[in-house]
Amino acid sequence: MNREACAAPMALLLTIDSNEWDGAHGSWMPTEEWDVPAHLRDRCPTKLTVGRDGLLSVFACPTEPGHPHRWSIQ
């Protein structure tokens, strides 16, 4: 298997965020959390922190799955 990277643009495969929602916007908030007071809501139920409270993006080669993945932390 050729594991050398090619010149194809990488495609976003996965993004993992340190927080599930920011508290101000309800778009990511689970319906079970709507009735819980804001100061008791757990924005990070997985207890996963990426970098300094950021997000991790993983990229894959769309033309050859055997090529190495790339990642970015923001």
Score class of each variant (00 low, 15 high):
1 M>I: 14
1 M>W: 07
1 M>T: 15
2 N>L: 08
2 N>I: 05
4 E>V: 11
5 A>G: 11
6 C>R: 00
7 A>P: 01
8 A>D: 05
8 A>M: 01
9 P>S: 07
9 P>M: 02
10 M>I: 01
10 M>H: 02
10 M>G: 00
11 A>M: 09
11 A>Y: 03
12 L>C: 10
13 L>W: 08
15 T>G: 00
17 D>M: 06
17 D>K: 13
18 S>R: 03
18 S>Q: 03
19 N>E: 15
19 N>M: 11
19 N>K: 08
20 E>T: 13
21 W>Y: 15
21 W>G: 07
21 W>N: 06
22 D>H: 04
23 G>T: 02
23 G>M: 04
24 A>T: 12
25 H>S: 12
25 H>E: 13
25 H>W: 15
27 S>I: 12
27 S>K: 14
28 W>P: 02
28 W>C: 13
28 W>Y: 12
29 M>D: 00
29 M>Q: 14
29 M>S: 02
30 P>R: 07
31 T>F: 10
34 W>R: 14
34 W>H: 14
34 W>D: 07
35 D>I: 05
35 D>Y: 04
35 D>M: 06
35 D>N: 11
37 P>D: 05
38 A>T: 08
39 H>L: 06
39 H>I: 06
40 L>R: 14
40 L>T: 02
41 R>T: 02
41 R>P: 00
42 D>T: 04
43 R>D: 08
43 R>Q: 13
43 R>S: 09
43 R>P: 06
43 R>N: 09
44 C>Q: 14
45 P>N: 05
45 P>M: 03
47 K>S: 11
48 L>H: 08
49 T>G: 03
49 T>A: 08
49 T>E: 08
49 T>M: 08
50 V>M: 08
52 R>M: 10
52 R>C: 15
53 D>C: 09
53 D>F: 09
54 G>K: 07
55 L>R: 08
56 L>D: 03
57 S>T: 07
57 S>D: 07
59 F>Q: 00
59 F>T: 01
60 A>T: 07
60 A>V: 07
60 A>Y: 00
61 C>H: 05
62 P>D: 01
63 T>S: 12
64 E>P: 00
64 E>H: 11
64 E>K: 09
65 P>R: 04
66 G>W: 02
67 H>C: 10
67 H>V: 02
67 H>Q: 09
67 H>W: 01
68 P>F: 09
69 H>W: 10
69 H>L: 13
69 H>Y: 10
70 R>P: 00
70 R>I: 01
72 S>E: 13
73 I>M: 05
74 Q>R: 12
